[in-house]
Amino acid sequence: MRRLLPVAAAVGLLLLLAGLQPWLRFVLTIALSTGLAVLGIAMLLRAGQVSFGHALYVAAGAYAVAFARPHTGEGLLLLLLAGLVATGLGLLVGLFVTRYRDIFFGMLNLAFSMVGWSLLEKLYGLTRGTDGIRVARPTLLGFALEGAAWEWALFSAALAAALLAGALVASYLRSPAGEALGAIKTRETRLEFAGISARRVLLQAYVVSATLAGLGGAIGALATLHVTPLLAYWTHSGELVFVAILGGTGNVLGPFLGAVVFELVRVHAAAAFPDAWQMILGLVLLAIVLAAARGLVGLLDDLAVRLGWRG
């Protein structure tokens, strides 16, 4: 019950904000989709592994929506398809990258994402290059929605996906295979001497992380109704890692909290400093990492302890 209280509070706050301003509904939908991708990054961080290329799976989900849209009009079907495409790609790449750790894991992911980005840019006939592809608004559960009704429906779908993913991942992280992620970080060889394939542990989490990123990308594509190769660019991967560290990886709420704060700040800051946005992110990331801080979740936790809500 105590675990559900922060979740209920977060959902309440999101609904309140979304009701306040129409533009907030859009921003929060995007934030939830980012949070889904970041949730996957956070799983990998538990194993001490950082992927600098997960935007590849966000883009895979988004482009799956764009490519499939002319063939089907149902939004939920598009989300499902996008999840499947990202999962398949994650399995394919994962079989290779999970042979490696640390530097190799991080950089190989970056390399794969940059290949994906280049292909999206170069294969103009298929992807229309940097122009990207416009996505016609689909139906949701068969309803053709417009304006505020569409925004609310998509926001609700994103919220439902986030809640479901958060619950499943939280449960997975408490399972033996989930707990073994932390064991990869501290003493991987001992897992092998327990008869457990560390690579399989990591691969499982990697594939799940790709699915989550793909789902996030698909929701993002439905919100913006436009996909471009920039979705796969390294700066986007960097933002996902940034949000994971900002939110904190100790808890499945962290990625979503981080994403909401990040997207709300970005709405103003990225417009004010278009050429210094990455620099600001880099500086904040350095500050958090060097101070060994536990992100926003850690901050809230400390606050709760200080206020006497938690022992």
């Binding site: 950082v50 640390d102 210094a276 990455q278 620099m279 990492v289």
Partner: peptide, 21 residues
Amino acid sequence: HVLQLLVTFALLMILEDVQKL
């Protein structure tokens, strides 16, 4: 290692914009 990677990655983000500025 993960922290070392994050630090030099943050540096990449910073230098990328320094160059643009």
